[in-house]
Amino acid sequence: MARIVSLLLALTLSAALLILPAMRARELTSAGHGLLMPLLILVCALFVHGLGLRPQRRWAQAMLSPWLLWPASLVLAATWWWLS
């Protein structure tokens, strides 16, 4: 179930990152550009978790934990929306 949620969240965020800036008809600010890189890394991590990768290393398991990925991606996406 967690993998499906991660995959759906990744698909939603990637679609939003493609569509929303054009819908707002504004250029991204420098702060918005600065937040894009960590947000895209989180979206990639959500795709990796959602597609079923099971890392063997402890640190990689912690980095791909939905308990870390979901709140971080939602907070960062909301911050990006607010600052851009």
Rank of each mutant, 00 (worst) to 15 (best):
L42T: 03
E27R: 14
L20M: 06
W70M: 10
L83M: 15
R26K: 11
L69E: 04
I19Y: 07
L9E: 06
A60K: 09
L42A: 08
L83Q: 15
A72D: 05
A78S: 14
R3F: 03
P66A: 02
L17N: 10
A72V: 08
L68A: 13
V75D: 08
A72T: 14
S14H: 12
L40T: 14
L69M: 09
L76H: 13
P21H: 00
W59Y: 13
L18Q: 12
I41Y: 15
W82H: 09
H33C: 14
H33P: 06
A15S: 15
A2V: 10
F47K: 00
L18T: 14
V75F: 10
L64H: 05
R26W: 01
L35A: 02
S73Q: 06
L40G: 09
L42H: 04
T79A: 15
Q61W: 04
L69T: 03
L7M: 04
S73L: 03
L69S: 07
L28W: 06
R58E: 14
A60W: 11
S65E: 13
L64N: 08
W67Y: 12
P71G: 02
L53G: 09
S14F: 07
T12R: 14
W59L: 11
A25E: 11
L53V: 15
A2S: 13
H33R: 13
L53F: 14
L9K: 01
